[in-house]
């Protein structure tokens, strides 16, 4: 899958789910892309570097979300 296609797919699917959740596990994203985790990782990392996605971490678990979505950014005085 090309990077731009993958980016679009992630944006569309994550936007659709925004009403119910704003943070996603890595495996959720790999499933959206229909790729094995190792292959998906390269594309997903690039999306983080490009600002399409951002990391969220509880300290023990990491998740991914689109920047500015969810309660976090406003609640934590970061917007």
């Amino acid at each position: 899958m090309e990077y731009d296609e993958a980016k679009e797919k992630i944006k569309v699917e994550l936007t659709k789910k925004l009403k119910t959740k704003s943070k996603f596990y890595f495996n959720d994203l790999a499933k959206i892309l229909g790729m094995k985790p190792r292959e998906a990782k390269k594309l997903i990392n690039q999306m983080v570097l490009d600002g399409v996605l951002e990391y969220w971490s509880s300290g023990s678990t990491s998740m991914y979300g689109m920047p500015g979505t969810g309660k976090q950014s406003s609640a934590e005085h970061e917007d």
Partner: peptide, 24 residues
């Protein structure tokens, strides 16, 4: 204390754990 956050350093998904006080 609130749990977790989006903070980190550029390109890294680990190494930083966001901690915020709920009585700022």
């Amino acid at each position: 204390w609130k749990h977790g956050g989006i903070v980190g350093v550029f390109g890294y998904g680990g190494g930083v754990i966001g901690r915020y006080c709920d009585q700022p």
